[in-house]
Design a binder for these strands. Sequence first.
DNA 1: ACTGTGACACTGG
DNA 2: ACCAGTGCCACAG
Length: 127
Amino acid sequence: MQKKAAQKRRATEIKKKSASADDKRAHVVRCIRSLPAGTVSSYGAVARAAGWARAARQVVRILREAQGLPWHRVVGSGGAIRLSGENAAEQKFRLRMEGVTFRGARVDMKKHEFHFPNLKFGRGEKR
DNA sequence: ACTGTGACACTGG
DNA sequence: ACCAGTGCCACAG
């Protein structure tokens, strides 16, 4: 049975290396999917909610790559639309369709920011 | 290995 | 309100 033990050891070692990044991605995806229509969140907030503080840019990457996500519900801090041209228009359009209101060029966060419930991924560090 | 780039965030003028 | 500078993580060249 040493063979089996060895196999297991190898497996856990591999997991130790690759697992975390993938898990984090999964958490981010889940957070985004959990955004109710008519609400928004920010890149940084999503990252923290997923237990991956300071990974706002990775959230962006995921938003672009992953399919079937309510990408339009994620904006920059303060409710700023960070896309440009057609994309920005598209996002604003979709948000408005869901009843989201704007204050000038940005989403009215007071009214629509979504506060993630305490999910227990891994404590998002503080700064 | 180093540099540049990105749908970012935060601080300080 | 607008801009730099800095920090951040991942990926492409």
